[in-house]
Design a protein around this nucleic acid. Structure first.
Lengths: 137, 137
DNA sequence: ATTAATCCTATCGATTTAGTAGGAAATACA
DNA sequence: TGTATTTCCTACTAAATCGATAGGATTAAT
Protein backbone atom coordinates (compact mmCIF):
# COMPACT_ATOMS: atom_id res chain seq x y z
CA UNK A 1 0.00 0.00 0.00
CA UNK A 2 1.06 3.51 -0.81
CA UNK A 3 1.16 5.54 2.39
CA UNK A 4 -0.86 8.72 2.76
CA UNK A 5 2.41 10.48 3.31
CA UNK A 6 3.63 9.56 -0.16
CA UNK A 7 0.31 10.26 -1.78
CA UNK A 8 0.03 13.69 -0.17
CA UNK A 9 3.66 14.44 -0.93
CA UNK A 10 3.21 13.66 -4.60
CA UNK A 11 0.07 15.74 -4.79
CA UNK A 12 1.78 18.65 -3.13
CA UNK A 13 4.74 18.49 -5.49
CA UNK A 14 2.39 18.30 -8.45
CA UNK A 15 0.44 21.28 -7.17
CA UNK A 16 3.56 23.40 -6.89
CA UNK A 17 4.81 22.27 -10.29
CA UNK A 18 1.54 23.25 -11.89
CA UNK A 19 1.72 26.75 -10.51
CA UNK A 20 4.87 27.48 -12.47
CA UNK A 21 5.47 30.86 -10.80
CA UNK A 22 8.44 32.12 -8.85
CA UNK A 23 6.41 32.93 -5.76
CA UNK A 24 6.55 30.32 -3.01
CA UNK A 25 3.39 28.33 -2.37
CA UNK A 26 1.96 28.09 1.12
CA UNK A 27 1.09 24.91 2.94
CA UNK A 28 -2.33 26.28 3.81
CA UNK A 29 -3.15 26.77 0.14
CA UNK A 30 -2.08 23.27 -0.86
CA UNK A 31 -3.80 21.79 2.13
CA UNK A 32 -7.14 23.39 1.24
CA UNK A 33 -6.94 22.72 -2.45
CA UNK A 34 -5.88 19.10 -2.16
CA UNK A 35 -7.80 18.15 0.98
CA UNK A 36 -4.75 17.28 3.02
CA UNK A 37 -4.64 17.81 6.80
CA UNK A 38 -2.48 20.89 7.20
CA UNK A 39 -0.35 19.77 10.12
CA UNK A 40 0.36 16.46 8.45
CA UNK A 41 1.31 18.17 5.23
CA UNK A 42 3.63 20.42 7.18
CA UNK A 43 5.74 17.46 8.24
CA UNK A 44 5.75 16.04 4.73
CA UNK A 45 6.95 19.34 3.24
CA UNK A 46 9.71 19.38 5.79
CA UNK A 47 10.85 15.98 4.60
CA UNK A 48 10.79 17.09 0.99
CA UNK A 49 12.80 20.18 1.82
CA UNK A 50 15.38 18.30 3.85
CA UNK A 51 15.86 15.85 1.00
CA UNK A 52 16.47 18.66 -1.46
CA UNK A 53 13.38 18.71 -3.65
CA UNK A 54 11.97 21.87 -2.15
CA UNK A 55 13.30 25.17 -0.94
CA UNK A 56 11.44 27.26 1.60
CA UNK A 57 10.98 30.81 2.71
CA UNK A 58 9.76 31.69 6.18
CA UNK A 59 7.39 34.42 7.30
CA UNK A 60 4.76 36.41 5.48
CA UNK A 61 4.53 35.51 1.81
CA UNK A 62 6.75 32.57 2.53
CA UNK A 63 6.18 29.03 1.40
CA UNK A 64 7.78 26.30 -0.68
CA UNK A 65 9.21 26.18 -4.19
CA UNK A 66 10.85 23.56 -6.38
CA UNK A 67 14.61 23.48 -6.43
CA UNK A 68 14.81 21.70 -9.77
CA UNK A 69 12.87 21.67 -12.99
CA UNK A 70 9.89 19.30 -12.79
CA UNK A 71 11.36 17.31 -15.65
CA UNK A 72 14.47 16.69 -13.56
CA UNK A 73 12.57 15.33 -10.57
CA UNK A 74 12.23 11.59 -11.11
CA UNK A 75 9.78 9.35 -9.36
CA UNK A 76 12.55 6.95 -8.36
CA UNK A 77 14.00 9.65 -6.13
CA UNK A 78 10.75 11.01 -4.78
CA UNK A 79 9.41 7.55 -3.99
CA UNK A 80 12.57 6.52 -2.18
CA UNK A 81 12.39 9.58 0.03
CA UNK A 82 8.69 9.39 0.80
CA UNK A 83 7.93 5.69 0.66
CA UNK A 84 11.31 4.08 1.25
CA UNK A 85 12.87 1.28 -0.79
CA UNK A 86 11.21 0.50 -4.10
CA UNK A 87 11.92 -3.22 -3.75
CA UNK A 88 9.36 -5.31 -1.89
CA UNK A 89 12.05 -7.27 -0.05
CA UNK A 90 15.36 -5.95 1.28
CA UNK A 91 17.26 -8.77 -0.42
CA UNK A 92 16.50 -7.32 -3.86
CA UNK A 93 16.87 -3.67 -2.90
CA UNK A 94 19.47 -1.75 -4.86
CA UNK A 95 19.86 1.00 -2.28
CA UNK A 96 18.97 -0.71 0.98
CA UNK A 97 20.15 -4.28 0.49
CA UNK A 98 19.85 -6.64 3.42
CA UNK A 99 20.17 -10.39 3.63
CA UNK A 100 17.13 -12.41 4.68
CA UNK A 101 17.29 -14.26 7.99
CA UNK A 102 15.64 -17.34 6.60
CA UNK A 103 17.47 -17.73 3.28
CA UNK A 104 20.71 -19.71 3.23
CA UNK A 105 21.23 -18.90 -0.45
CA UNK A 106 19.17 -16.18 -2.04
CA UNK A 107 20.10 -17.20 -5.56
CA UNK A 108 18.06 -20.32 -5.05
CA UNK A 109 15.14 -18.50 -3.50
CA UNK A 110 11.99 -18.51 -5.60
CA UNK A 111 10.67 -15.37 -3.95
CA UNK A 112 13.92 -13.57 -4.65
CA UNK A 113 13.67 -14.18 -8.39
CA UNK A 114 10.07 -13.05 -8.53
CA UNK A 115 10.74 -9.92 -6.55
CA UNK A 116 13.63 -8.92 -8.79
CA UNK A 117 11.22 -8.93 -11.70
CA UNK A 118 8.71 -6.82 -9.82
CA UNK A 119 11.40 -4.41 -8.73
CA UNK A 120 12.71 -3.99 -12.26
CA UNK A 121 9.32 -3.39 -13.80
CA UNK A 122 8.38 -0.87 -11.14
CA UNK A 123 11.73 0.84 -11.44
CA UNK A 124 11.19 1.17 -15.16
CA UNK A 125 7.99 3.11 -14.56
CA UNK A 126 9.50 5.38 -11.94
CA UNK A 127 12.61 6.07 -14.01
CA UNK A 128 10.47 7.01 -16.95
CA UNK A 129 8.23 9.36 -15.01
CA UNK A 130 9.16 12.84 -13.83
CA UNK A 131 7.20 15.42 -11.92
CA UNK A 132 6.64 17.15 -15.25
CA UNK A 133 4.76 14.08 -16.44
CA UNK A 134 2.59 14.06 -13.35
CA UNK A 135 1.69 17.70 -13.62
CA UNK A 136 0.94 17.75 -17.34
CA UNK A 137 -2.85 17.39 -17.55
CA UNK B 1 7.01 -4.30 1.75
CA UNK B 2 6.19 -7.91 1.16
CA UNK B 3 4.84 -9.41 4.36
CA UNK B 4 6.47 -12.44 5.95
CA UNK B 5 3.17 -14.17 5.52
CA UNK B 6 3.37 -13.86 1.74
CA UNK B 7 7.02 -14.72 1.62
CA UNK B 8 6.58 -17.82 3.74
CA UNK B 9 3.46 -18.79 1.82
CA UNK B 10 5.26 -18.60 -1.51
CA UNK B 11 8.17 -20.59 -0.18
CA UNK B 12 5.86 -23.26 1.16
CA UNK B 13 4.00 -23.56 -2.12
CA UNK B 14 7.28 -23.78 -3.98
CA UNK B 15 8.50 -26.46 -1.61
CA UNK B 16 5.42 -28.58 -2.18
CA UNK B 17 5.56 -28.05 -5.93
CA UNK B 18 9.16 -29.19 -6.05
CA UNK B 19 8.33 -32.43 -4.29
CA UNK B 20 6.10 -33.55 -7.15
CA UNK B 21 4.83 -36.62 -5.27
CA UNK B 22 1.31 -37.64 -4.40
CA UNK B 23 2.00 -37.88 -0.69
CA UNK B 24 0.94 -34.85 1.35
CA UNK B 25 3.71 -32.71 2.79
CA UNK B 26 3.76 -31.88 6.48
CA UNK B 27 4.02 -28.42 7.95
CA UNK B 28 6.84 -29.55 10.25
CA UNK B 29 8.92 -30.61 7.27
CA UNK B 30 8.43 -27.34 5.40
CA UNK B 31 8.98 -25.35 8.55
CA UNK B 32 12.34 -26.98 9.21
CA UNK B 33 13.56 -26.93 5.65
CA UNK B 34 12.59 -23.32 4.95
CA UNK B 35 13.26 -21.81 8.38
CA UNK B 36 9.70 -20.72 8.98
CA UNK B 37 8.19 -20.65 12.48
CA UNK B 38 5.92 -23.68 12.55
CA UNK B 39 2.90 -22.14 14.24
CA UNK B 40 2.98 -19.17 11.92
CA UNK B 41 3.23 -21.42 8.90
CA UNK B 42 0.28 -23.37 10.20
CA UNK B 43 -1.98 -20.35 9.90
CA UNK B 44 -0.65 -19.52 6.46
CA UNK B 45 -1.32 -23.04 5.19
CA UNK B 46 -4.84 -22.73 6.50
CA UNK B 47 -5.33 -19.59 4.46
CA UNK B 48 -3.98 -21.27 1.35
CA UNK B 49 -6.25 -24.24 1.84
CA UNK B 50 -9.34 -22.13 2.45
CA UNK B 51 -8.66 -20.19 -0.72
CA UNK B 52 -8.40 -23.37 -2.75
CA UNK B 53 -4.73 -23.68 -3.60
CA UNK B 54 -4.09 -26.51 -1.20
CA UNK B 55 -5.91 -29.60 -0.08
CA UNK B 56 -5.18 -31.23 3.26
CA UNK B 57 -5.32 -34.51 4.99
CA UNK B 58 -5.53 -34.80 8.74
CA UNK B 59 -3.94 -37.28 11.09
CA UNK B 60 -0.89 -39.44 10.76
CA UNK B 61 0.75 -39.18 7.35
CA UNK B 62 -1.42 -36.20 6.70
CA UNK B 63 -0.31 -32.86 5.31
CA UNK B 64 -0.91 -30.56 2.39
CA UNK B 65 -0.92 -31.05 -1.36
CA UNK B 66 -1.55 -28.85 -4.40
CA UNK B 67 -5.03 -28.88 -5.86
CA UNK B 68 -3.90 -27.65 -9.27
CA UNK B 69 -0.90 -28.12 -11.49
CA UNK B 70 1.88 -25.67 -10.57
CA UNK B 71 1.65 -24.19 -14.06
CA UNK B 72 -2.00 -23.32 -13.39
CA UNK B 73 -1.29 -21.47 -10.17
CA UNK B 74 -0.62 -17.86 -11.13
CA UNK B 75 1.07 -15.28 -8.97
CA UNK B 76 -1.79 -12.85 -9.48
CA UNK B 77 -4.05 -15.18 -7.55
CA UNK B 78 -1.57 -16.22 -4.88
CA UNK B 79 -0.51 -12.64 -4.21
CA UNK B 80 -4.09 -11.43 -3.90
CA UNK B 81 -4.84 -14.09 -1.32
CA UNK B 82 -1.68 -13.68 0.73
CA UNK B 83 -0.78 -10.04 0.29
CA UNK B 84 -4.08 -8.45 -0.67
CA UNK B 85 -4.68 -6.07 -3.57
CA UNK B 86 -1.90 -5.78 -6.11
CA UNK B 87 -2.57 -2.08 -6.66
CA UNK B 88 -0.82 0.36 -4.34
CA UNK B 89 -3.93 2.50 -3.98
CA UNK B 90 -7.54 1.29 -3.78
CA UNK B 91 -8.61 3.75 -6.48
CA UNK B 92 -6.66 1.80 -9.11
CA UNK B 93 -7.47 -1.65 -7.79
CA UNK B 94 -9.23 -3.95 -10.24
CA UNK B 95 -10.62 -6.26 -7.60
CA UNK B 96 -10.94 -4.03 -4.56
CA UNK B 97 -11.76 -0.62 -6.00
CA UNK B 98 -12.51 2.19 -3.59
CA UNK B 99 -12.76 5.90 -4.14
CA UNK B 100 -10.28 8.14 -2.37
CA UNK B 101 -11.61 10.49 0.30
CA UNK B 102 -9.48 13.37 -0.84
CA UNK B 103 -9.92 13.17 -4.61
CA UNK B 104 -12.85 15.00 -6.18
CA UNK B 105 -11.99 13.61 -9.61
CA UNK B 106 -9.58 10.74 -9.86
CA UNK B 107 -9.10 11.15 -13.60
CA UNK B 108 -7.30 14.38 -12.87
CA UNK B 109 -5.21 12.91 -10.07
CA UNK B 110 -1.52 12.69 -10.84
CA UNK B 111 -0.99 9.91 -8.34
CA UNK B 112 -3.79 7.91 -9.88
CA UNK B 113 -2.16 7.93 -13.30
CA UNK B 114 1.19 6.91 -11.92
CA UNK B 115 -0.25 4.12 -9.85
CA UNK B 116 -2.12 2.69 -12.82
CA UNK B 117 1.19 2.31 -14.59
CA UNK B 118 2.77 0.61 -11.60
CA UNK B 119 -0.22 -1.69 -11.21
CA UNK B 120 -0.12 -2.71 -14.86
CA UNK B 121 3.56 -3.43 -14.91
CA UNK B 122 3.38 -5.47 -11.72
CA UNK B 123 0.33 -7.31 -12.97
CA UNK B 124 2.19 -8.21 -16.11
CA UNK B 125 4.87 -9.92 -14.07
CA UNK B 126 2.42 -11.78 -11.88
CA UNK B 127 0.29 -12.89 -14.80
CA UNK B 128 3.33 -14.24 -16.55
CA UNK B 129 4.60 -16.18 -13.58
CA UNK B 130 3.18 -19.44 -12.30
CA UNK B 131 4.21 -21.62 -9.40
CA UNK B 132 5.89 -23.84 -11.96
CA UNK B 133 8.19 -20.94 -12.86
CA UNK B 134 9.06 -20.37 -9.22
CA UNK B 135 9.87 -23.99 -8.55
CA UNK B 136 11.94 -24.62 -11.67
CA UNK B 137 15.57 -24.18 -10.58
C1' DA C 1 -5.25 -46.51 22.85
C1' DT C 2 -1.58 -43.84 21.11
C1' DT C 3 0.56 -40.95 18.14
C1' DA C 4 0.68 -37.65 14.64
C1' DA C 5 -1.16 -34.51 12.05
C1' DT C 6 -4.38 -30.53 10.83
C1' DC C 7 -7.90 -27.20 12.60
C1' DC C 8 -9.45 -23.27 15.15
C1' DT C 9 -9.77 -19.28 18.26
C1' DA C 10 -7.71 -16.11 20.95
C1' DT C 11 -4.11 -13.31 22.50
C1' DC C 12 0.06 -10.39 22.51
C1' DG C 13 4.13 -7.28 21.98
C1' DA C 14 6.30 -4.40 18.73
C1' DT C 15 6.10 -1.43 14.99
C1' DT C 16 4.09 1.64 11.77
C1' DT C 17 0.68 4.93 10.30
C1' DA C 18 -1.75 9.03 10.31
C1' DG C 19 -2.16 12.30 12.38
C1' DT C 20 -2.33 16.35 16.57
C1' DA C 21 -0.39 19.80 19.96
C1' DG C 22 2.21 23.50 21.12
C1' DG C 23 5.25 26.61 20.58
C1' DA C 24 9.93 28.72 18.59
C1' DA C 25 11.96 31.27 14.90
C1' DA C 26 12.00 34.11 10.93
C1' DT C 27 10.02 37.52 7.82
C1' DA C 28 6.97 41.21 5.80
C1' DC C 29 4.75 45.17 6.47
C1' DA C 30 2.26 48.98 8.83
C1' DT D 1 8.59 48.67 16.76
C1' DG D 2 4.82 45.59 16.83
C1' DT D 3 1.79 42.37 14.75
C1' DA D 4 0.45 38.99 11.67
C1' DT D 5 2.03 35.28 8.99
C1' DT D 6 4.60 31.68 7.77
C1' DT D 7 7.87 27.77 8.31
C1' DC D 8 10.43 24.88 11.78
C1' DC D 9 10.86 21.52 15.35
C1' DT D 10 9.88 18.19 19.01
C1' DA D 11 6.95 15.37 21.20
C1' DC D 12 2.90 12.84 21.74
C1' DT D 13 -1.05 9.62 20.69
C1' DA D 14 -4.79 6.49 18.97
C1' DA D 15 -5.53 2.92 15.92
C1' DA D 16 -4.17 -0.54 12.88
C1' DT D 17 -1.14 -4.10 11.26
C1' DC D 18 2.46 -7.59 11.68
C1' DG D 19 4.63 -11.51 13.25
C1' DA D 20 4.08 -14.39 15.74
C1' DT D 21 2.60 -17.72 20.15
C1' DA D 22 -0.71 -20.55 23.18
C1' DG D 23 -3.69 -24.08 23.92
C1' DG D 24 -6.50 -27.21 22.83
C1' DA D 25 -10.13 -29.71 19.50
C1' DT D 26 -10.54 -32.82 15.78
C1' DT D 27 -9.31 -36.44 12.69
C1' DA D 28 -6.85 -40.40 11.02
C1' DA D 29 -3.36 -44.33 10.95
C1' DT D 30 -1.45 -48.11 13.27
Amino acid sequence: MLSKKTKYGLKALTYIAKKEGDAPVQISEISKSENIPQKFLESIMLTLRKSGFLGSKKGKHGGYYLRQEPSDILMTDVMRVLEGPIAMVPCVSLNYYEKCDDCPDEHQCSVHKLMIQVRDSTLKVFRNTSLADLSSS
